[in-house]
Design a protein around this nucleic acid. Structure first.
Lengths: 207, 207
DNA sequence: GCCGACGGTGAGCGGGCGCTTAGCGTGGCC
DNA sequence: GGCCACGCTAAGCGCCCGCTCACCGTCGGC
């Protein structure tokens, strides 16, 4: 159905870069809890409990609850940006690159919905410094999509009046998948990715 | 630029249906606080403080903090649904009705961004009963948009393969405006409404 | 076999939370 | 002018939060 993204040989176990093992278990537990109830409604006792540890164990691996969110957000944004870059910078026409970028970006937001939810919707819970770091990553995401659209317009493939506005709308559409996508629902991440790639090509007036 | 929505003579003061005055001041304060920091991160002391009252005053007018959120969510959804209905049920082609519906719905999400944010993103903080009530309203919102698209397809105005999926995407696009729209940013609600109406017409392949 | 390093626990701290209650000022009605 | 009803406040209750600290079991190195 499409090509780019985590093709290192099937499904990559996420968070494998987080060591030691106990720190990863805590982080995975935090992702689930934050996604389900939101950062502020999640207690450190809940996170530790999900990881099968006492509340105090959390503070051996992380200074604060906010540091957990920061790490999740940072790693998640890196991953999302990487997926988008792989698709955006492959060879092919702007149309092919945009379709690939959108479908793989959407597949990630649907398939890794819990992570995406935390990454996209808990930004305001971070302190000023951490937030600034994440906002910079988001600007890179925006620039990546904008470049494909600009390329398409320059090549006469796309018909777009407001490039910045359209870029914003395309990203907004993809990101919001993390809000409504339901794992038990009727659509697979692949189906949503394909549908959205088509819709976005229409939005940019692809020939 | 468009016609439907709160055209009772300029800007309608929102929440005017909430009485007495003190209850309305508390509710407006709660909307601002919930929009800024989220429901769980907002304290009853903060809400009362913004309304110029003591913390205890809140409980004269509302049984709990959650009742405040419920009232805000209910009134906000009613308003959003009303705006959409007005546009959807006017006379005209499906193309005109869809453009009007999207632009007015988007203008509301941008112009009343604080309210829209609470309404769209704090659903999970409600208890089961209140959530069920709101979810029912959302289904009506979905049905309203889907009907326009179905009409357009039946009339040969639109070219849509997956009506449900496209409806979902259109609403998702509009709703997410409440997440990113910035009052101090470069775009007015009217501009975003016009841009989005155009993008949505492209998505449905309007002739 | 002892010993230090390290990852973990149980108990609990200071504080802020949602919410309650006793009482007070004021304005309308006779 | 007296009195009651109502809207509001000051104070605080009980609870649970994020986080800390004193202590402990295990395991590799000599």
């Amino acid at each position: 159905m499409s090509t780019a993204e985590e093709t290192t040989g099937g499904e990559v176990e996420p968070w494998e870069e987080v060591t030691p093992d106990a720190a990863r278990r805590l982080l995975v537990a935090a992702v689930e809890a934050f996604a389900e109830r939101g950062y502020h409604a999640t207690t450190t006792r809940d996170i530790a409990g999900r990881a099968g540890m006492s509340p105090a164990a959390l503070y051996i691996h992380y200074k604060t609850k906010e540091e957990l969110l920061h790490r999740i957000s940072r790693i998640g944004h890196d991953k999302a940006l990487g997926i988008l870059r792989t698709a955006a910078r492959r060879e092919g026409t702007a149309k092919e690159r945009l379709a690939d970028a959108v479908s793989s970006f959407v597949r990630w937001h649907a398939g890794r919905r819990t992570t995406a939810r935390v990454v996209q919707y808990e930004l305001d819970a971070l302190g000023p410094d951490a937030r600034a770091e994440i906002v910079a990553l988001r600007r890179q995401v925006d620039a990546e999509v904008r470049r494909i659209i600009e390329d398409g317009v320059a090549a006469g493939e796309f018909d777009v009046l407001d490039v910045r506005g359209t870029t914003l709308a395309v990203l907004s559409l993809c990101i919001d998948v993390a809000r409504w996508f339901n794992v038990d629902g009727p659509r697979t991440p692949e189906e949503v990715g394909a549908l959205y790639a088509d819709l976005v090509l229409r939005m940019v007036g692809a020939r």
